[in-house]
Nucleic acid binder design. Structure first.
Lengths: 199, 199
DNA sequence: GTCTATAACTCGATAGAC
DNA sequence: GTCTATCGAGTTATAGAC
């Protein structure tokens, strides 16, 4: 009995995961606006309607694709653990560690989408600044009120690194080992955070 | 005789210039992909078909809108004129001078469009690097072969500044006088160009 | 030079068969 | 769970009247 019956087999076929993976890659490569659900479906070798079946709409798919299994508190733990005069290199190490990880595509996707226009600036502001903000500002804000500017300067150097190294992928910077990048950029961050930046 | 006759008046009506101006603003705000010709026409208070009449297609309009009446050689002249140990601040001053000028929208439009995806990376590479490249590298490349990396590091800091100050417009950095920004960022560029960045 | 009308295309989303 | 078929909205671009 139980000879092969018609119809699809039950159980997980992996389509859902392939959709998420394809979405991450395409969102990272092209940003939100220029990525089509049809293209995602094609890359995942799946029908476009199936994408809607799983995720409802494009925005929900984006959110699902970029959902990070990364706790910012964990990432910043080594920064918190070190002395203030090492905060620059430690911060660079922590961030590059995440960027050079499998979560890379998801992070690039968010960054690229926000920069590419339309994306919610407030969202990136929260993600990029406020989380790091509360962590860093209290430790470097001895002269009253320079904390925000200092963190923004750090963000500017790291954002630019993201652009050149991960988005435009310009060599040799793109292939430089993370440790070398930390050696170069760490002192810059250190100066922005604890050095002299005017009043 | 010659009483008011029906039909449009001959001569230049300024529509073409208004279209270009609107295009610059919208491309700068939303990137290439998310900007529609209809929106450009609406902002210029003109029919959408007129845009096609003048510029043919959307891509040609973009090219026309971002065409810079700026000669990179002129911008870099003050950099060329100064000593090598002032090259960082001078370069920052030169670039911020252009960015804080009326050409601002056009430059943001290019940057945002390339970062936003789809845009020709090679195009920005030429614009962002190669032009500055030939100007800067020969002056800082004493240890063999570090020139390209040094210029890319400078580009990363400036690209990040572009993101935070002009695209995300995060305060207080966005409203900081250019002179103050040069004071802060100049030393960073100087170190990247002539300082110690490893081998 | 400017506009109306519309062709031709692409996208996100839905309905329903299997 | 997966696919076919299609709708409706939005886009660029063209043709032609005035």
């Amino acid at each position: 009995m139980t000879a092969t019956r018609p119809g699809r087999r039950p159980g997980n076929s992996g389509s859902r995961d392939r959709i998420l993976e394809s979405a991450r890659e395409l969102f990272a490569d092209n940003g939100f606006g220029k990525t089509t659900i049809r293209a995602i479906a094609a890359r995942a070798e799946v029908d476009a309607a199936l994408v809607h079946h799983y995720f409802g709409n494009k925005h929900a798919l984006f959110v699902a694709a970029i959902a990070l299994p990364v706790d910012p508190d964990d990432v910043l733990a080594p920064v918190r653990a070190g002395p203030v005069d090492e905060i620059g290199p430690r911060l660079a190490t922590a961030l590059l560690g995440v960027w050079d990880s499998p979560h890379r595509d998801a992070i690039i996707a968010v960054f690229r989408t926000v920069i590419g226009g339309g994306g919610d600036v407030g969202l990136l502001r929260t993600f990029l600044l406020d989380i790091v903000f509360d962590e860093i500002v209290p430790r470097v804000d001895h002269p009253a009120g320079t904390g925000p500017l200092r963190v923004e300067l750090v963000a500017s150097q790291m954002a630019g690194l993201m652009v050149m190294r991960y988005i435009l992928r310009i060599e040799p910077l793109a292939s430089l080992p993370a440790g070398r990048v930390v050696e170069i950029v760490g002192p810059t961050l250190q100066r922005y955070l604890t050095g002299d930046v005017g009043c």
